[in-house]
Amino acid sequence: MKVLMIFDQIQAGMGGKEKADIPLGGKKGEIGSVPMIKPHLNDVDGKIIACLYCGDEYFEKNQDEVSKKMVSMVKKLNPDVVICGPAYNYKGYAHMSAHLGKELSEKTDIPVIAAMSKENKDIISKYKNSVNIVKMPRKGGIGLNKSLKNICVLAQKMVNGEDIKELKKDICY
């Protein structure tokens, strides 16, 4: 299973809040926070082929451009599944994850998963019908490991075309 991750600057290991204006970029292979999710991806035979990233402020200011470019880059790299997140309670990143998740779902056939904490309730209620949003704790909250596992299990089922209705009830918003 070929996995593509979409990160903000913090999860990409490109700096903190002060780097929110970095434009979109990417690496083939693993960057930043990948080691957190990697053991769970291994469990479902997932391998990260690329990580794309964008500063959350840059996204906010250039939504159309970023969305278009992300969609076409994902098409070009052609992964089996895209994971937008984990976005914790970072509001900018959560918005980016949900929005890109929706765009990718509409414009490609590739399964997409977003993940964020319940603090982003406006974003969740706006996007949850367009993209599967996995529940996760806020930054520094409890249950991170479990939610990373949930993301990977859902990813595998979506890729295999299995029925995810029951699972979704449990782990998604």
């Binding site: 913090i10 999860q11 990409a12 290991g13 490109m14 700096g15 903190g16 809040k17 002060e18 780097k19 930043g32 926070s33 080691p35 957190m36 053991p39 930054k139 991170l144 490991n145 990373l148």
Partner: peptide, 27 residues
């Protein structure tokens, strides 16, 4: 690269870029 980016915040006691970006969490 992450080291260079994190030194200034680090001097002021902020290490979020390291905690999640290196990462420390689950490592």
């Amino acid at each position: 690269q992450l080291g260079k980016l994190s030194i200034v915040p680090g001097i002021f006691g902020i290490n979020e870029p390291i905690i999640f970006g290196l990462p420390i969490v689950l490592n």
